[in-house]
């Protein structure tokens, strides 16, 4: 008898919760103001604890990264030496081009591109699963950080702010399956979309199979983004493959920024 009564009680509770969850899922998909406020408030409540815990565990994970790095040191040094020699060759060429560019701009009366208004932020959370790849930063609306702003570090674009609460914000990284950003191939000036995938690889999509694209080509942001400044480094092409089922090339992109070790970043406000 007691068994049945308990059974009925749990069935009633689960039935109520199922109905409640269906309502929550439906309302959340309608992008309601109440939900956005609740999410912002929750992020703000958990921010201090999250920040402290993340900083604590970051040191632990950093230790494991150092161990894995130790075994890859030889390969890394070789790659860096190759890259360094290539960069040295390009350096003198760039100096000449810069001088020439400055002179021509002077002749045409064009001003140099101005810098961006940025906000320095600290990474206080990292979340990766099959469905998402996000970080949490310690600045929000109170610092002028808003949804849609680009987040960068010294190596290039990291992601976009998707949710800004008062004191913290969520940033969708480029390898998030939902991420999609307009990109330009620096050498050929061709346009495509840089998109994330569930296996956390980044692809440059919508590049025709007849286009000449080369491994190592550098990608930058386009001038067409609403909040995204142009000419920010995204990454370089790592692998190109052709599929008979698709009219586009399958291009894998390697970002310059290492998401696993993010500690600080900049939010571009303007």
């Amino acid at each position: 008898m007691a068994f049945e009564r308990k059974n009925v009680k749990s069935i009633i509770v689960i039935a109520v919760i199922i109905v409640l969850c269906i309502v929550i899922i439906t309302v959340s998909f309608r992008d309601s103001e109440v939900f956005n406020k609740t999410i912002s408030a929750t992020l703000d409540i958990f921010k201090p604890v999250q920040e402290k815990t993340f900083v604590f565990f970051q040191k632990t994970t950093g230790f494991f990264f150092n161990i894995s790095d130790y075994f890859k040191l030889n390969d890394k040094v070789k790659n860096l030496e190759n890259e360094n020699s290539q960069l040295l060759n390009k350096y003198s060429e760039s100096i000449n081009l810069k001088t020439e560019n400055d002179q021509l701009r002077g002749l045409l009366g064009m001003s140099l591109r101005s810098g961006h208004n940025t906000q320095a932020v600290r990474v206080i959370g990292y979340y990766e699963s099959g469905w998402q790849s996000r970080i949490v930063i310690n600045s929000g609306k109170s610092d002028g950080v808003l949804e849609g702003m680009a987040v960068v570090n010294e190596k290039g674009l990291i992601g976009i702010v998707i949710l800004a609460s008062n004191n913290s914000s969520e940033v969708r990284l480029l390898n998030d399956p939902q991420s999609s950003i307009g990109a330009r191939i620096l050498s050929s000036r061709k346009l495509g979309l840089v998109e994330g995938s569930p296996d956390k690889k980044i692809y440059l999509n919508y590049i025709d199979q007849n286009e000449d694209i080369f491994k190592g080509d550098v990608l930058i942001t386009t001038e067409f983004g609403e909040n995204m400044p142009a000419e920010i480094l995204i990454g370089r092409i790592k692998k190109i493959s052709i599929s008979s089922n698709s009219p586009y090339k399958l291009i894998e992109v390697e970002t310059f920024a290492d998401y696993k070790r993010l500690e600080y970043a900049l939010v571009i406000k303007e």
Binding site: I18, C21, T42
Partner: peptide, 16 residues
């Protein structure tokens, strides 16, 4: 709320 893409899905699953 903190990490999900679909709010309510984990709530439903954990309850089930």
């Amino acid at each position: 709320i903190m990490t999900g893409q679909i709010i309510g899905i984990n709530a439903l699953l954990f309850a089930l």
